[in-house]
């Protein structure tokens, strides 16, 4: 039996659905799908400037697994750039940390232990899970 994959820890999912190339007619079928784990790997290494070893710890995966995820996302982005593909995000095998969204003032926030389940700004209790 195949071993079950460990969930990749993601602190924040992307706040948008994807990217599309400018100046091209919509290319049907030309689409690259990036998982949240791949997005997070790129974020940690190339935006937050962590080493691969540090990023692997944050994502709760081994160093070789992290390297595989990171190489995968870089190849996908290169393909999308060169071939003019649309990039879409998908959840994949990810454990996403909890964020909430206020339906009144539209801010996103966390709720620390012992704090009321309400918007920190407008005190509205009409809140949803953001992801």
């Amino acid at each position: 039996m195949a071993r079950t994959k460990k969930l990749r820890q993601i602190q924040m999912a992307p706040q948008f659905c994807g990217f599309s190339p400018d100046g091209l007619l919509k290319n049907k079928g030309k689409e690259v799908s990036i998982t949240f784990a791949e997005y997070e790997a790129l974020n940690l290494c190339d935006y937050e400037l962590m080493t691969q070893a540090e990023a692997a710890v944050v994502m709760n995966v081994s160093r070789p697994t992290f390297t595989r995820i990171y190489e995968s996302v870089r190849r996908k982005i290169a393909k999308a750039f060169i071939e003019g593909c649309t990039i879409t995000f998908e959840t994949g095998n990810a454990d996403i940390a909890e964020w909430y969204k206020c339906n009144s003032c539209r801010i996103s926030f966390t709720i620390p232990q012992g704090k009321a389940h309400e918007c920190p700004f407008c005190k509205n209790t009409d809140i949803n899970h953001a992801q």
Partner: peptide, 10 residues
């Protein structure tokens, strides 16, 4: 911030 129980607001 989660470990320190600090609320984050975006």
């Amino acid at each position: 911030f989660r470990s320190q129980n600090v609320q984050m607001i975006m």
